[in-house]
Nucleic acid binder design. Structure first.
Lengths: 151, 151
DNA sequence: TGTAAATAGTTGCGCCCGCAACTGTCAATC
DNA sequence: GATTGACAGTTGCGGGCGCAACTATTTACA
């Protein structure tokens, strides 16, 4: 007895939480990005920068990289692109000439005002498919994992 | 009264569920991929293919693309790479000469046996940080969103 | 049977990303 | 005040990805 070698455990990908999270995140992203890609010509990094600057006037590339956990080069390129399109302005920071204060142009604010309600509506529609307890549980789980991973 | 124009709703990215899902998925992926990248030289598509073939002997590139929701070119390249490394074999399907039946080589099975317990352990460790109810709620929410998005 | 549509898989191409290295500026220390 | 290290931001480079187009095979159907 007890002579059997430990059987190899099997890993079924569709039941593996890291995989499920990734697949779900991609699907939700695609579901959402249709809006800002096709109707506004933004990709995901640009969308994130636009929204962040729209919320926090005068923020910098670094602060966006910190709060969104995007690589700073990705942020840099998104900012450059938005500026080229006239949606964003860079102004040298008063106290620190390394940093650049960002703010939306008039056109940028217009896009923000058009886009944000649509995005929130999509989020609301998606989440409304969940029962009250399911939603609460999901958000609690998300929050806890964010804590654990220090996001 | 009622003369105020509707204020622009604000979207705070750290509270926006699609963003949170993406950020969390990336973090969990990175947390996990350290194992199969540094210790086994696999990237994510290769890892997924290895695991899937390890579970379902004789599956094809197409079935992997379907079950993992990866683009078929991504699957194709992962398979080619695994074959080059001698971890996987392609055999022409008996009934359909377009398709290729996949199975792990001896070296591939060895890697599977070494890798799977480590991956499951990482998943377990991560999820053990959640309370019982939190975990249950998270999984229920994930499952429901998968249903809604037809994953 | 012969033709057209569908399917499995591969490959060329362009794009985006992260890494590393770089410039310019600030802060600390002597 | 000069030097050293830290920090904000940009850019060249290599690699991976998805799209579209392609080959080869199978299926549907007239």
């Amino acid at each position: 007895m007890n002579a059997r070698p430990a059987p190899t455990p099997t890993l079924h990908l569709p039941a593996f939480v890291p995989f499920r999270l990734n697949r779900l995140a991609v699907a939700v992203s695609n579901h959402l990005s249709v809006i800002y890609r096709e109707r506004f010509g933004l990709d995901i990094p640009e969308w994130r920068v636009l929204v962040t600057v729209g919320c926090e006037r005068g923020c910098t590339a670094q602060s966006i990289a910190d709060s969104t956990r995007m690589h700073k080069t990705r942020v840099s390129r998104a900012i450059a692109h938005l500026e080229t399109r006239g949606l964003l302005e860079r102004a040298s920071h008063n106290e620190d000439r390394r940093a650049l204060e960002l703010q939306l142009t008039k056109a940028g604010r217009k896009m923000y005002q058009d886009l944000v309600p649509l995005a929130l509506e999509r989020e609301r529609t998606l989440l409304s498919q969940l029962g009250k307890d399911e939603l609460k549980g999901l958000l609690a789980g998300l929050t806890r994992l964010e804590q654990v991973l220090e996001l």
